[in-house]
């Protein structure tokens, strides 16, 4: 199977990013565009060189081979989910849910532990970490924490 070369793909993405950044500087005054335009041109030139280089010298890199794709996906989606839940129910509850769920999920390879004790340990961590830092930030440092739509904090 022909693999997609990551270098080619990333160089094309960067060419687009640079072109877009340059396009966006239109209509600005000289003092506002001089710097982003310079940086954009550098990026464009480097990306084009990189593109040519990666076409000439095709290296078959397997960037994502040695990883557990599923775990990485779950972890990434988990962070996004965490974010959404914070927006809904506020920081403290979201954090307890998130840490609990992920401490449990990440223990799946621990064969010698029973599900019940995994659940328990994850729960202790979740409550311990969340509440400790919540109190520390909110009451000691008086730093506000993200509130949700439905709950204050």
């Amino acid at each position: 199977m022909q693999r997609v070369n990551h270098d080619i793909v990333s160089s094309i993405i960067f060419i687009f990013v640079a072109a877009f950044a340059l396009w966006e500087t239109r209509g600005l005054s000289e003092m506002s565009y001089v710097f982003p335009r310079t940086a954009g041109i550098i990026l464009l030139v480097c990306s084009i060189i990189f593109f040519i280089k990666s076409i000439i010298k095709k290296e078959d890199k397997k960037a994502f081979d040695d990883i557990n794709k599923r775990k990485v996906m779950v972890m990434s989606l988990g962070m996004i989910g965490y974010l959404i839940v914070i927006g809904l129910v506020g920081f403290l509850i979201a954090s307890i849910i998130y840490i609990w769920a992920f401490c449990f999920y990440l223990q799946r390879d621990e064969k010698e532990k029973s599900n019940k004790s995994k659940m328990l340990h994850a729960g202790i961590t979740a409550f311990g970490v969340s509440i400790f830092f919540f109190v520390l930030f909110k009451f000691v440092f008086a730093v506000p924490l993200p509130p949700g739509i439905f709950f204050g904090g």
Partner: peptide, 17 residues
Amino acid sequence: ALVFVLCGLFVLGACAN
């Protein structure tokens, strides 16, 4: 179960607000 708990929290939050 998780979804269920979340829904519960929603309702609770809505009331509190």
